[in-house]
């Protein structure tokens, strides 16, 4: 069970308090109707799914209820950093632990 730091509560809490929300920084097009079918499919379905560092969304659903982002190494499951929704992805080294 992961231990996740909620950047709003500023506390580490067990995974059971959170819900995973998929890849982060997949922004909804500002004008969806102006997108092509390919662009829209890319937004809806296509994901980077990396083996290594992954920026992803979590929601502290059984806590403060806020969405935030985390960068996690998908090989070791180690969470490198968590940050608030809307903040830019922090610089991280590309190394896989």
């Amino acid at each position: 069970m992961l231990l996740i730091r909620c950047p709003y509560c500023e506390m580490e809490r067990p995974e059971l308090e959170f819900r995973y929300g998929g890849e982060a920084h997949v922004a909804r097009p500002l004008d969806p109707m102006a997108t092509s079918d390919d662009e829209w499919a890319d937004y809806l379905y296509f994901r980077s799914n990396p083996r290594g560092l992954h920026a992803e969304r979590w929601r502290h659903i059984n806590g403060c209820g806020r969405f935030f982002n985390a960068i996690r190494d998908t090989v070791s499951d180690k969470i490198v950093v968590t940050y608030k929704a809307g903040e830019a992805r922090p610089a991280t080294t590309g190394e896989i632990a």
């Binding site: 819900r19 929300g21 922004a27 909804r28 969304r57 929601r59 659903i61 209820g65 806020r66 969405f67 929704a85 809307g86």
Partner: peptide, 13 residues
């Protein structure tokens, strides 16, 4: 509710 919160917090903040 989760769906609404998702859009409210992350797409239409």
């Amino acid at each position: 509710l989760h769906h609404m919160e998702d859009y409210l917090q992350t797409e239409f903040p």
